[in-house]
């Protein structure tokens, strides 16, 4: 491990430090295929410069698949961007941009199990890459909303058609967004929170 001396490690800027009163954090996961806009969304809403946490997969057979060869010592570094929003002096929200492949999720303890909910970012040019991740979230009982990141050359479908194609119940919010804009990304997160709130009122996911 290439460890730099303690003096050379820059920590958070003074204005990015959390108050001593910060008691607990919550997290939301933003999940989707490569290039769909996860990093962009984390960056547009985060109050701190987005950071990256890495994990290395080294064991054979644990998530290491044909993409990475079959050698038992294959090591893959998986990176996850994240950002932070201070909610109150006691409560902090973290947002994680997570690769869509489930085999990476176990690398981070409680990434999905502990999250309040998830945002599934989709690109209508390749809608099918998000099918599996939605199924995994459904199986794990993780509530999610679907945010369609609108790229200029992407086909535009009416929301009702998307809902039917994605086989989502009427309750699951689907909305269009432009994750480069903070207000739009914030709307996505607000939609997720309102959805979670409605689940809390009715006490059921369906």
């Amino acid at each position: 491990m290439d460890f730099k001396g303690s003096e050379t490690i820059p920590g958070p800027r003074a204005e990015d430090q959390l108050p001593q009163t910060a008691q607990a954090a919550v997290k939301i996961v933003i999940v989707g295929g490569f290039g769909v806009g996860k990093t962009t969304m984390v960056g547009s809403v985060s109050e701190i410069k987005p950071l990256t946490t890495e994990e290395t997969m080294t064991q054979a057979g644990v998530g290491v698949d044909d993409n990475f060869g079959s050698a038992s010592k294959t090591a893959t570094t998986v990176a996850m961007d994240f950002g932070r929003i201070k909610i109150t002096d006691q409560l902090v929200l973290y947002l994680f941009g997570t690769p869509g492949q489930e085999r990476f999720w176990f690398l981070w303890n409680g990434l999905f199990e502990g999250a309040l909910g998830a945002v599934v970012l989709v690109d209508t040019r390749r809608l099918e890459v998000s099918f599996d991740v939605m199924g995994r979230l459904e199986e794990r009982g993780v509530p999610f909303v679907v945010a369609v990141n609108s790229f200029p050359d992407a086909p535009r479908y009416p929301i009702a058609d998307l809902r039917s194609a994605l086989d989502l119940s009427e309750r699951v919010p689907i909305l269009e967004c432009d994750v480069r804009r903070r207000a739009s990304s914030r709307d996505v997160l607000m939609t997720l929170m309102r959805f979670l709130h409605s689940l809390a009122m009715t006490g059921s996911l369906t």
């Binding site: 290439d2 460890f3 730099k4 958070p12 430090q17 959390l18 910060a22 990256t52 902090v92």
Partner: peptide, 17 residues
């Protein structure tokens, strides 16, 4: 000041584990 394990991992450039 309080800092998440994820932030520690990022600032230290060390894997989460």
């Amino acid at each position: 000041a309080p800092l998440s394990v994820a932030e520690l991992s990022a600032y230290l450039s060390l894997p989460f584990g």
